[in-house]
């Protein structure tokens, strides 16, 4: 029994079953707080604690799920391609907003963490929080952060963006697919993009674009920005 509880079969089935169930719940009750990712993560953690299985075992057992993360990022290229003409027409504007967004993301999270008393390692691990996991891990490793902690922050931002992002943008009067997609993609990467993808292919295309551009810009800018911030703050 102990072996079965720590097998790919049980871990993958549990993850899929809880995810499908939470997705159904969200559709029925229409509450953004019933976020399927958040619910599934909570249930799986509870299960692992209860059965006394290490995270490392669960991670290895569910590689068949996480393997598809990279291909799903590549698939955003398909969504992007359909809107290439619109992107070309607005190229300068899009780049300007992404440059501002990327810098705002890095600098503001470090400043806030510093003034709220976070440790230096936490601060560095937070810096690349708005980009997709593989890039965030690279930046964190390179600058002396804790990569697995960065992954946790990336997911946390993603969930926050997925739950509150569109609500907040509505308050600002930002409603068109282009702006909503770019904002959520740049703030909350694939999870933000996934949260609006059901509203239409244009939402996911611009979400993918925001995520890609912010990823590229952050990969280039973050190391310099972090170096400068550490020099000023410490």
């Amino acid at each position: 029994m102990k072996e079965l509880l720590n097998s790919p079969l049980v871990h993958v089935s549990l993850t899929l079953a809880v995810y499908i169930f939470s997705k159904k719940m969200q559709l029925r009750y229409k509450s953004p707080l019933l976020n399927p990712i958040l619910l599934t993560i909570a249930v799986v953690i509870a299960f692992l604690l209860f059965t006394e299985v290490d995270y490392q075992d669960y991670e290895r057992n569910t590689q068949v799920i996480s393997f598809w993360l990279a291909p799903s990022v590549i698939a955003l290229g398909y969504a992007l391609y359909s809107y290439l003409e619109e992107i070309k027409a607005d190229f300068k504007k899009i780049i300007a907003s992404m440059l501002a967004g990327s810098l705002t993301g890095i600098v503001s999270v470090c400043m806030m963490a510093y003034f709220l008393g976070a440790s230096k390692a936490t601060l560095i691990s937070l810096a690349p929080k708005s980009v997709t996991t593989p890039i965030a891990i690279e930046v964190s490793k390179q600058m002396g952060g804790i990569p697995s902690l960065t992954v946790a922050f990336v997911i946390a931002v993603g969930i926050f963006g997925a739950i509150f992002g569109q609500m907040y943008l509505k308050l600002l009067g930002v409603k068109d697919p282009k702006s909503v997609g770019l904002s959520l993609g740049a703030t909350a990467h694939a999870l933000g993009t996934a949260s609006i993808s059901e509203q239409g292919p244009d939402f996911s295309a611009f979400g993918g674009l925001g995520m890609a551009l912010n990823g590229v810009l952050t990969a280039i800018l973050a190391p310099w920005a972090i170096k400068l911030l550490l020099l000023v703050l410490y």
Binding site: T40, I41, I45, I65, I74, S197
Partner: peptide, 16 residues
């Protein structure tokens, strides 16, 4: 892939 993107994050998220 696009429709199920969020799900592929779950194993990493549990690492929290």
């Amino acid at each position: 892939l696009l429709n199920n993107m969020a799900m592929f994050f779950i194993p990493a998220g549990v690492g929290i």
